[in-house]
Write a protein that binds this DNA or RNA. Structure first.
Lengths: 248, 248
DNA sequence: GGGGCACGTTGACCTGGATCAAAGGCTTCC
DNA sequence: GGAAGCCTTTGATCCAGGTCAACGTGCCCC
């Protein structure tokens, strides 16, 4: 909308919108499965948002843990640092996904969360979430499912890192992104990568040159069209076959 | 004890012992942090045990999920299967650790759990656990911590698979086992591996020959003494240095 | 609007770990 | 208690992906 923005207007808009009950990410996010009464209780809890500029940290490894975050808009990566300076991207997160679950175990965050584009998160104070999930069975159960899903996802990544060759890894990565964009109502075949080749490589356990070469190879083979961060997927079955067919 | 076992005796013994409140794994397991009243409520819930023979499955990928399991005694591995037949060990679990958390998300198990020695687990019906953790704050919170810890552990494995070289991986693996045996009151320096070289390799993203060679190399260097599955760790600092020092 | 710089591509070469192969040593199960 | 087969070790060779290097490209900020 072409309204001239004043800070008063921004505040108003933000207050109006900060409610799970009229958020279009409900189905992907924490409120999944709640009825109206329950939803309005959740609204009270999730009342604050925070904007994160591209490149800024939402939290850093070692910081005290107080809240988990639901991504309202934008795109994040999480990474872990080893003492000797090596690091690895452990995941890329998009709208509707939760950040910060790693912090529950020690009450300190165990990884960094960095915005890869200007983003906004809903702040969910964890003790209050635990309180509410003692009242609302559906919320409790869904939260457990979300944590469990994260464990299953991690097993998938371990599988990828442990058994797949470079091109299989990249194919799996692209198919996964495609599927997640689809779930959010975006094109499954065309998207912008928010991360660099190096970040993709770090996530996939490959060097950036290898990622770049694999992209080129996929383009030659007609599986995708790449131009920098702009990706068009041309042959999903082809990518899938590539993933399962190779090696023993 | 040299008692002649009759099935009546076995049942009695089993009934007596099946209670968190007098289990010596309390501190490592689900009951951590509960007071006496709470513990006795948990006792009601965790009333059944199950013995699993070496090589048998506790559950299989695809099976319906109903319960999580606390390992009372023994040693397990979990593994994931890809459509094309490749598989990977996603973890090794020992006494006091929980199995089955992966099943919550889809209500079906997503991996196989196999006993690596004759083992015994306590069956924890999940809906009842959710019920009880709505009543007992400490149980709820601890359960969340356990799930979160699993996520953090998985990130560590991703790190290992994504950034470490073969010998670093094996060093990390041995140090991790040592530390977990210590926590259970066993020697930190001497233990039997319950898994084969192939299973270690699968977990670490290496081939069995590479694992074997790395063991031999560690022995030559004086870090450990290996004889088949019997390991003595001779130089913990040496192994630690090996893990962090190498490469960039 | 232009200059600088981070990001991306491609080539040449190298190496760590995979693969293939063969020979013991343990365990287990009749 | 002995045989069969699994597990482990070790050697020789190979290759996928890492490393090093140089050059393009487009984005962003002044």
């Amino acid at each position: 909308m072409p309204l001239k923005k004043t800070s008063a207007q921004e505040i108003t808009l933000s207050v109006i919108k900060t409610a799970c009950s009229n958020c279009n990410l409900q189905e992907l996010c924490l409120p999944y499965g709640l009825n109206e009464t329950e939803m309005s209780k959740l609204d009270e809890l999730v009342s604050t948002r925070r904007k994160i500029k591209r490149g800024d940290h939402l939290y850093r490894a070692g910081e005290g843990f107080e809240s988990i975050y639901a991504i309202r808009a934008g795109f994040f990566k999480t990474d872990v640092l080893l003492e000797d300076g090596r690091d690895q991207v452990t995941g890329f997160q998009m709208a509707g996904e939760l950040l910060g679950l790693d912090g529950i175990s020690t009450e300190h965050h165990s990884c960094n969360a960095v915005a890869l584009e200007d983003s906004e998160v809903c702040i969910i104070p964890f003790p209050r979430l635990e309180g509410l999930s003692r009242e609302i069975v559906a919320l409790q159960h869904h939260f457990h499912k979300v944590m469990s899903r994260e464990i299953v996802r991690d097993h998938g990544v371990m599988m990828l890192l442990g058994t797949m060759r470079a091109e299989e890894r990249l194919a799996a990565f692209l198919l996964n992104l495609s599927q997640r964009f689809t779930a959010r109502g975006y094109s499954h075949a065309e998207f912008y990568l928010r991360m660099t080749r190096e970040e993709i490589g770090s996530y996939l356990g490959l060097k950036l040159e290898t990622v770049s070469r694999a992209f080129s190879r996929f383009q030659e083979e007609g599986f995708i069209a790449v131009q920098q961060k702009h990706i068009r997927i041309l042959d999903i079955p082809g990518l899938k076959k590539l993933m399962t067919h190779q090696s023993a």
